[in-house]
Computed example of a mutant assay.
Amino acid sequence: MSEAARAGESDGGGRGVTGDAATDEVLAEVGPRLRRIRKERGATLAGLSEATGISVSTLSRLESGLRKPSLELLLPIARAHQVPLDELVGAPPVGDPRVRAEPIVRHGRTYWPLTRQPGGLQAYKVLEPKRTTEPDPRTHEGYEWLYVLSGRLRVVLGEH
């Protein structure tokens, strides 16, 4: 692999090796962020070079955007500044990893899918609103398991 590919530099087509414009945009913001964090901590390029083992010229090129960041370069810098890697790259926030899909609202209930595979057993977190009227009876083939985490739930099965 060439040094340009390892460093994530342009492939000659005007786009980064990643080929993803959004990724290229995030990477372009890393250099100014590195410079800001270094200056906020009162560190010099020479001092950071000593702490990380990365040459002053490489650090300068990273900060000016002339060199694309790589994990091999960012990890020692994050360690030296004692900041999470996410802070250096400006990673976008992620949602709750336990609930991956958007909620679904049907018949006054809100459902959060907890499984992603179609078919087979499905798990949902369900918010059942308080009702003052009797709901319309519904039937379906199969089984349901319910765990009431708070409140009360009345289940009617046939005449029971």
Results as ranks from 00 to 15, higher is better:
Leu66Asp: 14
Glu102Trp: 07
Gly16Glu: 00
Gly13Phe: 13
Arg15His: 13
Leu127Pro: 01
Ala101Asp: 06
Leu73Lys: 06
Leu85Ser: 07
Pro76Asn: 09
Asp86Thr: 15
Leu74Met: 07
Pro32Val: 08
Pro137Ile: 06
Leu127Gly: 00
Pro76His: 00
Pro69Val: 11
His160Ile: 12
Gly19Glu: 12
Leu149Tyr: 13
Val94Ile: 09
Leu74Val: 09
Leu114His: 08
Gly19Thr: 03
Glu128Lys: 10
Glu3Gln: 14
Arg38Val: 04
Leu127Met: 12
Val26Thr: 11
Leu71Tyr: 10
Glu40Trp: 02
Glu159Trp: 10
Gly95Asn: 08
Thr44Glu: 07
Asp96Gln: 03
Gly158Glu: 13
Gly53Leu: 04
Asp11His: 08
Leu114Lys: 06
Leu48Pro: 00
Arg131Ala: 12
Ser55Cys: 03
Leu34Arg: 03
Arg116Asp: 12
Leu121Asp: 00
Thr23Ala: 07
Leu45Trp: 03
Ser70Trp: 02
Thr44Cys: 05
Leu153Gly: 00
Gly16Cys: 07
Trp112Gly: 02
Gly119Arg: 15
Glu134Ala: 13
Glu144Lys: 15
Met1Trp: 15
Pro103Glu: 06
Gly42Thr: 13
Pro137Lys: 10
Ser150Pro: 03
Leu71Asp: 07
Ser10Tyr: 13
Leu62Gly: 03
Thr58Val: 14
Thr115Leu: 06
Arg106Lys: 14
Glu144Arg: 13
Leu121Trp: 07
Gly120Tyr: 08
Leu59His: 02
Pro93Gln: 09
Trp145Leu: 14
Tyr124Asn: 11
Val17Cys: 03
